[in-house]
Structure formats: C-alpha cells, structure tokens
Amino acid sequence: MTLTLTIDTVRWREHHRGVLDRFPGLVPVCKGNGYGFGHHRLMRETARLGIGLAAVGTVQEAALVQDAFPGDLLVLTPYRNGEAPLELSDGTVRVVSTPEHCDGLAGRRVVVELMSSMRRHGITEDDLPALRAVMGGWEFEGFSIHLPLNRVDGAGGAGEVASWMRRLRGARMPLHRVFVSHLSAEEMARLHAEFPRTSFRLRTGTKLWLGDPGATRYHSRVLDVVPPERGERFGAGRRQPLSGRSLAVVAGGTSHGVGLRAPRRLSGLRERARHVAGIGHACLNRHLSPFVWDGRRCRFAEPPRSQESVLLVPGDGPPPVAGDEVAVQLRYTITRPDRVVEEPRVPLDAFAVTGSAPERG
C-alpha cells in the first residue's frame, strides 16, 4: 500500500541551479510538510547548493533539522514573549514583528519583519522609535518584508520595498540586508540598482522546489479491482454503482492529503461558474478524485479513507489490474507520501492527463 513521490533528480537539481543563478543570495524555505519532499531532504539539497542560510516555519521545525543542516536557520514565525523554551542552536535567527515582544532576545540574532500590504504582521512606521530603543542589544541581521503573492491592485512589489527602504533610511535604520519574497529577477535587479549598498535576498520555497512540475510526479498503486454486478451495492454508505463501472481500490487517503482542500479566493465569472458546477456535482455525490487512469481523472466511489481510496473507473476503456500504477494530481504542500524515490530521469508521457494540467502546490 504505497503512495509514491518520484523525483527526476537530474532535472530537479538543474532547476535549482537555474533559480540560484537568477537569484543570487537566495534563501530556500522549508516549512510545513517540506513541500512534499520532507524537511531533511530539502536541507540536504540546500547544503548541496552551498547555501548557508535556510528558512523554516516554526521553532519546532528548526529544532527538527538543526542537527542535520550545517548552516543557519531563519525562523519565519515571529517571536512572542513566553514561548515554550526549546534548545536551539546559535545559528538560529528569530523574527521580531512588534517592539512589545522582544523579551529574552538580548545577544540573539534577529531579523525585523516590516508590515506589508498583506497586513498580516510586522513593524509599522510608527513603531520605529520603540524599535530603536530595544534593538541595540541584538545581533541585528536585517529587515524582512513578506509581499502578497498576487498583487491584484497592480502595485509593484519592488515599489513597495523601495517605499519602505526610503522610510527606513529617513529614520537612520541600518540597511545592510533586506529579505524579500515574491519578486521577479527584474524587480530584484531594480532594487539592487536603486540601493546598491543593500543586499536583497529572496526567500522562496515554491519557486525553488516546485518551479519545474515536470521534474516530479505522484503515483499510486492499485490494490484491488472489483467489477460490481448490476444493482449491487457497495462501500460503507452502501451506494449503488453505475452500470459498466469497475471499482478500483488505490493507495492514498486522507492521511496522505487526498481529498483535502483549502478555501480559495475566486475571481472572474468563469472561475465562479466552474465552482458552482462543482457544487452541483457534489450535491449528486459525484466527486472528482485526483487519481488518473487512461488519461482521465476518476471519480470517488465513496469518501476517501485514511490510507486508501475507492474509485469509479470509467467504463469505456480497459480497467486497471491489481499492481498497476495510477498517476495522482496532488498539492505538494499538503501531501505526505509513503515514500520518495529518486531517479535519474522520469518518463512522464504515460502520465499525461487529457484536458487537465497537474495542480501545483
């Protein structure tokens, strides 16, 4: 019973080097589930690239990988007074997003997060006097700004960073290093040209680890195939299958991330119409699965279980047999495969999906 992530190692690493060439000083991000690859594998790849600073999401993640990574770790979650103590190495860099939460950071390495148009957390311009009063005891590493991924108002990310740079310069703040996110190589070049004395370092995970979707794939093993008799009921809900369909039991369930969806923001009439159509199918218990057989996505025969799923295989082609592999379209950021296999080259033609592109994390 296996849900597998296969990596075309040569192609994957070629992509890493290409991104690093476009973004010198890049800081790889490894958080959550390690973008589907796992924390330790991404830490090894970061070390292979010769990068001495990586970013993790939480202090728990820093404690998990600090013994396996020879470089420094930037913890992206802002520091808060009264945190449960953890044994973190001297190479740990903490983020401060408010002058009120700085207790216990004297002598520690600190990055200050600036409030961006995301309006999530960060120092505001009004906080700068209070910040100056407390930052003298730190080993100050620089500022950081997390920009929105989709700037729907047309505002440029580089312009937002430049605006903060001018305000910080006016307040006589040290500007030797600024960490940024979600900027293009052209935007980074404009910032370097306008502020040549500042080192701008891009933090990214998706662009680096998932930027070449052809370098990786998920696939699942068929555990069993049952051709139901006409009118025969099946499954925990005792539903009645459609005639001419086969039931395929495949590896991969909710514990792997199968069937999990996050809320998403809809824009445009076409996207809203597709969402409404999906609701209509759901009302008829016709839920599309991420599993692909013979170039077509199968529907769930019933809600996925913890470690396996039951599919309705389309009846107009040969059904799979036990032991076959089926492609799976999954979001990398929520998927936890049973195993990760590295290969020199991965043949992808057999996993092409008719009329559908793989969902990227």
Rank of each mutant, 00 (worst) to 15 (best):
Gly104Met: 11
Gly104Pro: 06
Gly104Cys: 09
Gly104Glu: 10
Gly104Asp: 09
Leu105Gly: 14
Leu105Asn: 14
Leu105Ser: 09
Leu105Pro: 08
Leu105Ile: 14
Ala106Gly: 06
Ala106Thr: 07
Ala106Met: 09
Gly107Lys: 02
Gly107Val: 03
Gly107Gln: 02
Arg108Gln: 15
Arg109His: 10
Val111Arg: 04
Val111Trp: 01
Val111Gly: 03
Val112Leu: 09
Val112Glu: 01
Val112Phe: 03
Glu113Arg: 15
Glu113Tyr: 10
Leu114Ala: 13
Leu114Tyr: 04
Leu114Pro: 08
Met115Leu: 07
Met115Ser: 03
Met115Lys: 00
Met115Pro: 00
Ser116Tyr: 02
Ser116Pro: 03
Ser116Ile: 03
Ser117Arg: 13
Ser117Pro: 07
Ser117Asn: 11
Met118Arg: 15
Met118Ile: 06
Met118Thr: 13
Met118Val: 07
Arg119Leu: 12
Arg119Lys: 05
Arg119Ile: 07
Arg120Ile: 15
Arg120Tyr: 10
Arg120Trp: 12
Arg120Ser: 10
Arg120Glu: 13
His121Asp: 02
His121Ser: 06
His121Trp: 01
His121Val: 04
Gly122Cys: 04
Gly122Gln: 00
Ile123Asn: 04
Thr124Glu: 09
Thr124Ala: 05
Thr124Ser: 15
Thr124Gln: 13
Glu125Pro: 08
Glu125Thr: 13
Asp126Trp: 14
Asp126Gly: 12
Asp127Met: 12
Asp127Arg: 10
Asp127Ile: 04
Asp127Asn: 15
Leu128Cys: 12
Pro129Lys: 12
Pro129Ile: 08
Ala130Trp: 01
Ala130Arg: 09
Ala130Pro: 00
Ala130Gly: 08
Ala130Cys: 06
Leu131Met: 14
Arg132His: 12
Ala133Lys: 06
Ala133Gly: 02
Ala133Phe: 01
Ala133Trp: 03
Val134Gln: 02
Val134Glu: 01
Val134Cys: 08
Met135Ser: 13
Met135Asp: 03
Gly136Gln: 09
Gly137Tyr: 05
Gly137Phe: 00
Gly137Met: 03
Trp138Cys: 01
Trp138Gly: 01
Trp138Ile: 05
Glu139Leu: 03
Phe140Cys: 00
Phe140Glu: 00
Glu141Ser: 15
Glu141Ala: 15
Gly142Ala: 09
Gly142Gln: 10
Gly142Val: 04
Gly142Thr: 11
Gly142Ser: 13
Gly142Leu: 06
Phe143Cys: 11
Phe143Val: 07
Ser144Glu: 05
Ser144Asn: 06
Ser144Cys: 14
Ile145Thr: 09
His146Pro: 00
His146Tyr: 02
Leu147Tyr: 07
Leu147Arg: 00
Leu147Trp: 05
Pro148Ile: 09
Pro148Ser: 10
Leu149Met: 14
Asn150Arg: 15
Asn150Lys: 07
Asn150Val: 10
Asn150Trp: 04
Arg151Asn: 05
Arg151Lys: 13
Val152Asp: 11
Val152Gly: 00
Asp153Pro: 03
Asp153Tyr: 08
Asp153Ala: 13
Asp153Gly: 02
Asp153Lys: 06
Asp153Val: 04
